[in-house]
Each structure stands twice: as structure tokens, then as C-alpha cells.
Design a protein around this nucleic acid. Structure first.
Length: 737
DNA sequence: AAGGCTCAGGGGTAT
DNA sequence: ACCCCTGAGCCTTGA
């Protein structure tokens, strides 16, 4: 690839364009302090480096947005220092500290606190009627960290088995015979499961890991108030915890043999756990907008919409509620999901012809029958006459992961008319014409536009270059300005990876793996999997499973191919990106494709700066494009990880992307970022290459600017270099360095 | 691509 | 305290 990319001395690259500085040029760098010694783990690090989920260096207090003693007395706005609230506790379990003992699974199964007197739980019966799954108060152990996960095989099964709870996935055959029987056997099992069930150690691990994740998230902070009405913070938090759980369960299941007849549904399993724990919001159904969920928000599982109260049924397409009209109560529709199961007409972006439910394919005898005017169909009919708003969620095929779906919340519609027509099978089908209410942010329309740009049916307005990488990436990256006349960003050479002038030598040789066709989960012989604590850090979709302090990817001497699952950050771009001119922050980066939480976006490319050069730069002037892995990070507490540890940066990596770089150099700072970085180590026999990879913090809808927290240079050194922050976030710190 | 197989929330209903 | 309705998501099979 290198030959077409130009070099410092080579001819002008096609990607070299005009000199305009983006926002991120406001980053000074500083030399390492004297006596710097990154390889002395027992001592406190000479540089300050904090993971957003902690632990934190002195001077940075962790936030407890959902669980501070005075939380309930303060208005939500004042509790909003962080976007979401992971419980952050410096804790005793630092990187080299001993692993605490096993945590009883019951410790996270504390029942939700009773509603305060006089506050009815919205007429709801509580988190779930299946409360037999949530019981048994236990000790709340907060600081179970990743070490426990990484060493789960060292836990003794007997020690854990007695703590295991009844929502274990490995149901017996008897349990599967019928729902009634299943329920019964579950409740029976609860009292004596320690003796009754013969747990194999991997099963024990699942429970322990789930316990650790939930403990580290401080879920008890989800009080009745937050369950009743959501806000952006709690919705984001729920989705973050959900996805974290789901990915981790997927990872664990991945390494196991499939059991015939047992479907693996980590989505349902994590959803149930959170439902039972009461980690959900907007429990009460409502017509119209749902607090905390914005038009254009995207989801990748139906369960996600259940948990945040956007659409309660985990399967059915029509959600409805009883509405009191004088003495009578009648059903009205509150939300619908159109996802291709029926013959809906979705041609127009603002109009949806929606089919009623029922009469359909999932009957045992496969007989298709007439739909009836009952349940959801009746509710839609009533809503037509009442004229109430109905939320519309459009399900689409996921471009990046074609077997999956993306759900786009397209805002409020009203039902204009209804009729009955004969479906393809000749049976009656109800049809409802829904029209989108004007004045809402664009959502589904944007998706349609992007699809047309991709298919060449229409062209993106304001395109300066169709591919500013000149083919250096496997996907084009457009350069777009539909704001003003500027013709491009700073002059630079596009290069998709990191340039080391000299590798860092390892003190001990590193073993490469011998996985010919690519590393596979469950392969206990793979040395790269071992380095990562027994798991591949990515799932099958290439999504980062959790926030590790350091990821070990396969290196140059490993036998596996470039498409190995343990080489995600080396395999190039997965989403269609564009560099665009922002209104007031110079150039920025965003994606045409939706991005899942945890998905790899890009690495930070550029030239590695060695120490003496750092000093030059530091004393000279501020450099425009610097990535400094030794910076301090505000405790955002939002990482999709169950680790409370700081990034483990084996050496103080500093990258300059001023002359040579990739799309990452255009990512702006935000105090409420949607992207985070993660150190990734690729080792060969005696050499070590550290890279910086960017991953999505949460699901990111198309055309949303990608931002990360630039962090803060070492305290006391940068005061005079403060720059005014333009991120516009409610939680904006006002400046950055 | 098509078909098979479970799964869970919550409405509805019988007790 | 149950049944029932509702397909999503994943897996196997096979063209």
C-alpha cells in the first residue's frame, strides 16, 4: 500500500490540499519529566493517565451521577457532569493488586428499593412480574474489576456454585418442555440449586462475570425516579450497560460448543437481566415523545427499545396502551416498528403504509388467515379516530452486519386513514397510512439520502474530493464542504497507519501465535488469546467486547491472516467516512454508516515521536496534530467496559499527524464524546509496536460528528494554553488544553 | 436464501 | 397465576 501514498520526500500527493487548520490544532505537548520510568509497575506512574472509568489521579474526583447521597435532592441538571454514570471507584484493585475473592452472584441481585411513600410505581407492578428471578439481598461488592474476569478459571466452582442464581442459561431438558413447567422448575431450583445443578466451570464463569460487570456499574443507583421518566443520561447509561453485558455474554458463548436445540440469544439474556434489576426507564407507557430518546437515535436490538421505554413489546410491532375516556377505556397505539415482516410500503420518507398484525406466518399449521380488528389493529384504528401521535421506528438491514438489523427512531407520525385489502395470500390485511409530523429532525430521510449517494442515484452536495485517501484506505473518504468556500484542510500526506522510526525493544521475547486460518475463540493454545486473558477482545462482528487496559493484537510474526479476528485495528476502515467542514470547529469527521457501540472506527496514524523530538516540539511551539497517550482523561465513566483500570500504556507514545496521518487527525474534541481510544499492542519476537485505536462509545447514527476527549496535559503545566472548547455539550468543561 | 427453533414482555383472562 | 400473542435473532440446511 505504501507505494501510492507518497512519502515525506516524494512527489506531491493527490491528497495534499489547501492549508486550513482544524480545531484539533490546539494541542500543545510536553516533555516527559526527568527520571521517567514507564516500566516500574510498583511505583506510581510519573505521568498521569486515567481511564474515564477510573481510577483517577489526585485532583480528579470520580462522579456518581446516579448514586450520590444527595442525588434525589438535586435537580437532574446539576447531576450531569458526566454523560452517563458508571460508578467509578479508585478501589484497591489496581493493575498489580491481588485479585479479590469470588463475589456472590446474589450480590447484584438485590431487589430494587421500594418506592418512597406516596409515590406509586405508575400503576406498574414493578420491574417484572417474574420477580422470582430477582430476590435475595446480598453484599454489595463494588470493585470487582477485570482481574477477576481474567482469572475466572482460577475460581473454584464449588465456591461459586452456591451463589448461582436461577436465571442461568443452562436449563435442563425438563425445563424446556413447556413454559409452565419451566417457570415451575425455575422457582423450585432456586432453593437448592447448589446441590441440584451440576455446574461445569464455564457456566460458573458466566455468572461470575455478569456479577462483576453489574457490580462495577453500580446499578443500585437506578432509583424509582429514574425508572419512571428517563433523560438522555439514563437512557444512554442503560444502553451502555446493556450492550456491555450483551457483548461479554456473546464473547463467552463464542468460545463454547453450540448446544443443539438451544439458541444463543445474548440480546434476550442481557435484556432480561436488566429488566429484572430494574435497569430501565420510561416504564410507564406514554403517547408521544419519550424523554431521553431523540428522533434519529438508533438501536440494534429490540430489547434496547424495551429497556428505554420507546417500544415495550420485545417482539410485536404495535405497542398500545389503555386510555381512559370518561368511564370507558379504549386502546390507543403509542408506537410501531416497521421492519419488513409485513408488506409495508416505505417508499416515501414521510409516509408509511403500515400493515396490521396477526393472521400470519408463524402459526404451526402455516395457515394464513384474515387479520382481526383486535389488539394492535384495534388500537391503531382507535388512534386514527383520536388523532394521537404514534412513534415510528423503522427497521433496516444493517450495511456493516448484513444478518442484523438497525432500528431508526423516526419520530412522531399521525394515522391518516385505514383500510382493509387482500394480502398476497388472499386474506384480509389491515392497512394504515401514517404521515410524519413536520418540524422534527431528519432521521430516516437521511438514511435514504445516504443510500442514494452510495448507489450513485444522487450526489452528495459540496463534495470537494470523492476520496481524500487516494485509495490508501479500502473505503473512500469524501471531503465535503457544504458550509462555506474553503477548499480543504491542511496540507498533509495520507497514510493509513503508524510509522515507527525504530520499534521499542521488549525486555522479554513475545510469542507469536500459530493460528493458520485466523485465531478462533476457545483455542486455548493461541498465545495471543492467552495474552488477552483467555478471550479474543473482539466479537465476531469485529466489535470490541470491553474496555481493556491494553489489547494484544496479533503481530507481524503471527501465522494468522490479516482478516484474523484479533487484528481488527489492522484491517482498515469498516464504515464509510467523510471529512466535512463544521460550522465553527474547522474540519471534522463523521460516518455515512451507522456505527455500533464498541465498533472499531480507525486508528490514529502518523509518525511516532521519540523523546528528544518531543522536547523540541514542546519548547518550540504547539503542534497542530499531536496525539499524546500520556494525557489525563476526565472520568467520563461511559466506556463500554467493565474495567476500572487505567489504560496501560507500556511506553509514552506520542504521535504527530501533522505531515503524515489518516482520518483520525480530523476528529475534534468534545467533552461529551461518542468515541474513545484504546491502546493496542502488536508484538513480534523482540519488538513492540503500540497503536491507538478508536472505538464507538455508543451507537452513532449516520452523519453525526465523531468526537473524542482530547484529555488534559499534566496538571500545572498548561494553564496558559487553555483553549476555549466549542463542543457545545451540556457538560462542556468550557475549555481544553 | 429459506426454514426451524426458541425466546420474553406484557396484555388478557381465569382463578 | 397462568395463557397467549407477537416475530427477532440465531442456527442449520441446502441450492
Amino acid at each position: 500500500m505504501e507505494q501510492s501514498l507518497g512519502s515525506d520526500s516524494g512527489p506531491a500527493d493527490k491528497s495534499r490540499v489547501l492549508n486550513v487548520k482544524p480545531l484539533r490544532c490546539l494541542v500543545p505537548i510536553f516533555p516527559s519529566p526527568p527520571n521517567f520510568s514507564p516500566f516500574s509497575p510498583g511505583q506510581s506512574a510519573p505521568f498521569v493517565c486515567a481511564n474515564p472509568s477510573g481510577p483517577f489521579p489526585s485532583g480528579f474526583a470520580p462522579f456518581y451521577p446516579f448514586f450520590s447521597p444527595t442525588d434525589s435532592q438535586r435537580p437532574p441538571e446539576q447531576n450531569s457532569q458526566t454523560p452517563f454514570g458508571v460508578h467509578n471507584q479508585p478501589g484497591p484493585f489496581g493493575f498489580n493488586n491481588p485479585i479479590p475473592g469470588a463475589v456472590p452472584i446474589t450480590s447484584f441481585r438485590t431487589p430494587p428499593p421500594p418506592p418512597p411513600p406516596g409515590v406509586a410505581a405508575n400503576g406498574d407492578t414493578g420491574p417484572s412480574r417474574r420477580n422470582y428471578q430477582t430476590h435475595t439481598t446480598g453484599i454489595q461488592s463494588q470493585s470487582q474489576s477485570e482481574e477477576a474476569d481474567d482469572n475466572e478459571y482460577s475460581e473454584t466452582p464449588n465456591q461459586n456454585a452456591q451463589y448461582l442464581s436461577s436465571f442461568s442459561m443452562h436449563v435442563t431438558d425438563a425445563e424446556r418442555t413447556s413454559k409452565a413447567q419451566r417457570s415451575k422448575s425455575k422457582s423450585q431450583k432456586r432453593g437448592r440449586k447448589g446441590q441440584e445443578v451440576n455446574f461445569s466451570s464455564p457456566e460458573v464463569d458466566v455468572e461470575l462475570i455478569i456479577s462483576n460487570i453489574l457490580n462495577s456499574c453500580n446499578l443500585m443507583a437506578f432509583d424509582t425516579f429514574r425508572r419512571a421518566d428517563g433523560d438522555k443520561e439514563s437512557v444512554g447509561y442503560i444502553l451502555m450497560v446493556y450492550d456491555l453485558l450483551r457483548r461479554r455474554i456473546t464473547q463467552i458463548e463464542d468460545g463454547k460448543e453450540a448446544t443443539p436445540g438451544v439458541t444463543r440469544r445474548p440480546d434476550l439474556r442481557s435484556g432480561t437481566i436488566l429488566m429484572n434489576k430494574g435497569i430501565r426507564t420510561n416504564i410507564k407507557k406514554r403517547i408521544g415523545l419519550v424523554p431521553g430518546v431523540e428522533v434519529g437515535d438508533i438501536f440494534f436490538f429490540r430489547m434496547e427499545m424495551c429497556l428505554v421505554g420507546l417500544h415495550a413489546p420485545c417482539m410485536a410491532g404495535i405497542d398500545y396502551m389503555g386510555l381512559k375516556i370518561s368511564l370507558e377505556e379504549e386502546p390507543v397505539a403509542v408506537s410501531i416498528v416497521s421492519s419488513g415482516g409485513y408488506e409495508d410500503n416505505v417508499e416515501d420518507g414521510d409516509v408509511l403504509i403500515y400493515s396490521g398484525q396477526g393472521g400470519n406466518i408463524y402459526r404451526k399449521d402455516k395457515q394464513i388467515i384474515d387479520q382481526k380488528l383486535e389488539r394492535g389493529n384495534l388500537a391503531l384504528e382507535k388512534s386514527l379516530h383520536r388523532g394521537n401521535e404514534v412513534r415510528v421506528i423503522r427497521g433496516l438491514r444493517d450495511v456493516v452486519n448484513p444478518t442484523g438489523k438497525v432500528y431508526v427512531y423516526d419520530g412522531l407520525y399521525k394515522i391518516q386513514e385505514s383500510w382493509v385489502e387482500k394480502g398476497k395470500a388472499g386474506c384480509n390485511v389491515f392497512k394504515y397510512k401514517l404521515v410524519r409530523l413536520p418540524g422534527q429532525p431528519e432521521a430516516f430521510i437521511t438514511w435514504k439520502s445516504i443510500q442514494q449517494w452510495k448507489e450513485g442515484l444522487s450526489s452528495r452536495a459540496g463534495v470537494i474530493l470523492p476520496d481524500l485517501t487516494s485509495g490508501a484506505e479500502n473505503l473512500p473518504v469524501s471531503l465535503v464542504n457544504d458550509v462555506d468556500d474553503e477548499k480543504g484542510p491542511a496540507y498533509f500526506t495520507y497514510f493509513p497507519s503508524l510509522r515507527y522510526s525504530k520499534p521499542v525493544n521488549l525486555t522479554e521475547p513475545s510469542f507469536s501465535c500459530n493460528c493458520q486460518g485466523g485465531c478462533l475463540p476457545g483455542n486455548s493454545n493461541c498465545s495471543c488469546i492467552k495474552k488477552n486473558g483467555g478471550y479474543i477482545p473482539y466479537n465476531v462482528a469485529g466489535v470490541l467486547v470491553n474496555n481493556k487496559s491494553l489489547i494484544y493484537e496479533c503481530g507481524p510474526c503471527c501465522s494468522c491472516p490479516i482478516n484474523c479476528r484479533n487484528r481488527i485495528s489492522q484491517a482498515g476502515l469498516k464504515v464509510r467516512l467523510e471529512v466535512f467542514k463544521t460550522k465553527d470547529k474547522g474540519w471534522g469527521l463523521r460516518s455515512w454508516d451507522p456505527i455500533r457501540a464498541g465498533a472499531f472506527i480507525c486508528e490514529y496514524a502518523g509518525e511516532v515521536i521519540n523523546d528528544c523530538k518531543v522536547e523540541e516540539l514542546g519548547s518550540e511551539s504547539e503542534d497542530d496534530y499531536i496525539f499524546d497517550a500520556t494525557r489525563t482523561y476526565q472520568p467520563l465513566g461511559v466506556l463500554p467496559g467493565d474495567s476500572n483500570k487505567a489504560h496501560q500504556v507500556p511506553f509514552p507514545l506520542i504521535i504527530s499527524a501533522k505531515n503524515v496521518g489518516n482520518v483520525a487527525r480530523f476528529m475534534n474534541h468534545s467533552c461529551s464524546p461518542n468515541v474513545f481510544w484504546q491502546p493496542v499492542l502488536r508484538e513480534s519476537n523482540s519488538e513492540s509496536y503500540l497503536h491507538i485505536a478508536f472505538f464507538a462509545i455508543r451507537h452513532i447514527p449516520p452523519m453525526t460528528e465523531l468526537t473524542y476527549d482530547y484529555g488534559i496535559t499534566q496538571s500545572g503545566k498548561a494553564d496558559e494554553r487553555k483553549k476555549r472548547c466549542l463542543c457545545g455539550s451540556l457538560k462542556c468543561r468550557g475549555h481544553f488544553y
